[in-house]
Design a protein around this nucleic acid. Structure first.
Length: 457
RNA sequence: GUGGUUGUAGCUCAGUUGGUUAGAGCGCCUGAUUGUGGUUCAGGAGGUCGUCGGUUCGAGACCGAUCUUCCACCCCA
């Protein structure tokens, strides 16, 4: 019985012209990464569950795809846990492997494992798919590509500056007209919690104020209250919702606000450094914006945090990142600070598509298709094709002596640039009728002239 | 994971309170045009109405389950 073909939710097939666009995107990102001194690595698509679990918060664990144990290993299932209704432990006993959820945690594992083969600061980039068992939505998939650049082994703020420039470089190269690089610092969030006497509720506070642009000032106050933050603290935090003006102005306000919080002030100073250096160097199209309400869910961040939004389009953040001071500590290598960023390739693809920003000629299909007029003509066509290919252009012969109309239509459907006709007359004269499929013009040329025409494009 | 929403031809969608043979546009195929595509004209093919089950004399339409789509949460690229 024929099965109706389909793919799992949140996944996609890519047609040739889509792949061409994606390769253009990856190519642009890769070029910039290498320009900034990052080297590529790759890690497996799946890791041990123990490597991944517990690194992304409770919510994160729920979204990790588990790989069911196979064969005899099925017998390892922890039936006790099932009886005790401990579903998390039961699930872990059923799946000792899991698909990677992002590229940062596997990278931390990689660094610890290969520490003696690397020199620090180690800068790597990685362009690979990741998987999340999330419910699909606009710009949200279960399988998508992340393009990450990270550096570990240095806490220099120089890298924060470089990453801001890198965001700007890539997104400007991709022609995105208007985007905002939002930046904040986890130390500032800690400072806010400290100043208001709510250090215990740091997570609650960050989660709530992160929602400011979505649920508004009143919504955040309500949520803070629900999460048990004191009335007094809410009153103190409230002015932060209305911070505006230049980054420098906000820096000034935050310095006042965080007076007495050593950690908070350090966060502000770090950002101040980044603003100054970026200011000196200048950005091409991006706007750098100090957003005190930017929090980000991933709980391993400890310093600067980044998020990039394309303006004028309904799409979640297209890039993210931040500094993590001790991600490798979990794998037994403490004191190794790292900072990194991630480009959401699939979301950027959607943005470029919706804004019609892809260059027109990303999909080069075939330069010259030779029409098949029969065996004698085909023989000489094959020698022409060999020569054209040797000159670096793509060319092929239509496989059979079909009707001209059919061959032309095929050329048209495939977006072939030129059609070459070598029939009886051209065979005798050793010339080629070359038809430009865009203009429709047709000229009789020698092979050398055909190659010359291709090189002029 | 919670709440809602969608599914009819390759694609985008019509299809009346349940009633005979399920339609359109685009695309596709053939011909007008046996050495010329993209334009035009004429003709043609293509659907177990997401899937399984139920109600009914009768279901594309009503009910249930399931899968999928999109949306709002949660979270995030």
């Amino acid at each position: 019985m024929a099965q109706k073909p389909s793919i799992p939710k949140g996944t996609r097939d890519f047609l040739p012209d889509q792949v061409a666009k994606r390769n253009y995107l990856y190519g642009t990102i890769r070029t910039a990464f290498e320009k900034y001194g990052f080297q590529p690595i790759e890690t497996p698509s799946f890791e041990l569950s123990s490597t991944l679990l517990g690194k992304y918060g409770e919510e994160g664990d729920r979204l990790i795809f588990r790989i069911l144990n196979s064969g005899e290993k099925m017998k390892k299932a922890d039936l006790e846990a099932l009886k005790e209704d401990n579903l998390a432990r039961f699930a872990n006993s059923l799946a000792e492997k899991a698909l990677r959820y992002d590229l940062t945690v596997p990278f931390a594992r990689f660094v610890v494992q290969h520490q003696h083969e690397l020199s620090f600061p180690f800068k790597r980039y990685q362009i690979q798919p990741v998987w999340r068992a999330d419910r699909p939505q606009h710009g949200r998939y279960q399988e998508f590509y992340q393009c990450d650049a990270d550096v570990v082994g240095s806490d220099s703020l120089n890298y924060e500056v470089d990453f801001v420039l890198l965001f700007d470089e890539v997104l400007t190269e991709l022609n995105i007209p208007d985007f905002t690089i939002k930046i904040n610092n986890r130390k500032i969030l800690s400072g806010i919690a400290e100043i208001t006497g709510e250090s215990d509720r740091l997570v609650a506070i960050t989660v709530a104020i992160d929602k400011l642009d979505k649920i508004g000032k009143e919504g955040v106050e309500k949520e803070l209250k629900e999460r048990g933050v004191s009335e007094k603290a809410i009153q103190q935090i409230q002015p932060l919702f209305e911070l505006n003006g230049t980054n420098e102005a906000i820096v000034g306000r935050m310095k006042d606000f965080l007076q007495g919080s050593e950690i908070g002030l350090r966060g502000v100073e770090e950002l101040e450094f980044v603003f100054k250096k970026v200011e000196q160097l200048g950005l091409r199209r991006g706007k750098l914006e100090f957003d005190v309400t930017l929090a980000r869910g991933l709980n391993y961040y400890t310093g600067a945090i980044f998020e990039v939004k394309a303006n004028g389009i309904n799409m979640g953040s297209i890039c993210g990142g931040g500094r993590y001071d001790d991600l490798t500590g979990i794998f037994g290598m403490p004191g190794m600070s790292g900072v990194g960023i991630s480009f959401g390739a699939d979301r950027i693809y959607d943005v470029l598509n919706e804004l019609d920003l892809f260059p027109k000629n990303v999909s080069n299909t075939l330069d010259v298709l030779f029409v098949n007029f029969g065996e004698n003509e085909s023989d000489v066509c094959r020698t022409y094709i060999k020569e054209i290919r040797a000159n670096g252009f793509s060319s092929e012969l239509y496989p059979e002596n079909a009707k001209m109309k059919k061959q032309m239509k095929y050329a048209n459907d495939r977006n072939v640039r030129f059609v070459a006709l070598v029939g009886e007359a051209e065979f005798a004269s050793e010339l080629i009728q070359l038809k430009d499929m865009i203009s429709g013009e047709q000229t009789e040329l020698s092979l050398e002239e055909v190659i010359h025409t291709l090189m002029k494009l």
